[in-house]
């Protein structure tokens, strides 16, 4: 994009740069060398693995000693775990199921949170800005929704979740398929929400910075805006992880306890 001269060309160059930056790629551009990645891995795949390793290392280090009262890092992590267990899992699924399923939501929350936060850190890429990743994560939720409901309530109980009580049969014929579709729509919405949030934030930051490239010095104030958006991203990363986990818990609870 360096050699572009006219505004239109520069705009195209910025657009190309932004989209190539937020897209998955098969190389990892580090400051002095470029790491080529195999096709099955790709940059976002690498980020997934790095995130997993960071989490394992973090928890491994924090809880290597089994203190009666955790301090420092372990205390902070434990507070988050407690928050996820109490405010997401137990709040939605009830005391018994909430406690049993808390590990799943903790894993989801910390995984998504780490992936989101890695997007803000330079040199790393946003794996949650990859539709494949968010789809896979939302399908985990869908799997738990369907599998858990069948395990808990049986096939008939699972089917009953789509048939609300006290509704006449003609309405049911229309309503039941909508309810059934709703399950997939919820999952789809979950996918898109996380993906679009993470992607849009990065696109906005890069476009704001790109304005300087397109219009020159006159657009310098947009850098301040970009920094503002970047700080907003720091807030949005945990928020979206929370929303993703919370909605997962809500959807799972809805289908596991259809009477509510």
């Amino acid at each position: 994009m360096a050699a572009a001269s006219t505004t239109a060309e520069r705009t195209q160059a910025v657009k190309d740069y932004v989209f190539s930056h937020v897209s998955n790629s098969d190389h990892w551009a580090l400051p002095f060398f470029d790491v080529h990645l195999p096709g099955w891995l790709t940059l976002h795949g690498l980020m997934l693995i790095v995130a997993a390793l960071i989490l394992i290392a973090l928890f491994g280090l924090a809880f290597r000693r089994n203190d009666r009262v955790p301090r420092g890092l372990a205390g902070a992590l434990e507070a988050i775990v407690k928050f996820v267990r109490d405010n997401i899992s137990i709040a939605n699924l009830g005391e018994e199921d909430g406690r049993r399923m808390a590990p799943l939501f903790c894993s989801l929350f910390f995984f998504v949170l780490t992936l989101n936060l890695m997007g803000i850190v330079p040199l790393f890429a946003t794996a949650t800005g990859n539709l494949g990743v968010t789809t896979a994560l939302a399908l985990v939720t869908l799997g738990v929704m369907i599998g858990g409901a069948i395990y808990k309530n049986g096939l008939i109980g699972f089917a009953k979740a789509f048939v609300p009580a006290g509704i006449p049969i003609p309405v049911l014929i229309i309503l039941a398929p909508i309810e059934f579709m709703g399950m997939f729509i919820k999952t789809f919405a979950l996918t898109i929400r996380l993906f679009a949030n993470m992607l849009a934030g990065h696109i906005v930051i890069f476009v704001l910075l790109g304005l300087v490239v397109i219009f020159g010095g006159i657009a310098l104030p947009s850098v301040v805006l970009a920094i503002g958006i970047d700080l907003l991203e720091v807030l949005i990363a945990p928020l979206q992880a929370y929303i993703f986990t919370l909605l997962s818990a809500m959807f799972i609870a809805q289908i596991h306890h259809p009477e509510h």
Partner: peptide
């Protein structure tokens, strides 16, 4: 492949964690 990798990573991560 991305979805597969995500499931694999998430599965292993969830187990280890």
């Amino acid at each position: 492949p991305m979805m597969g990798l995500t499931w694999l990573t998430f599965g292993i991560l969830a187990f280890v964690l």
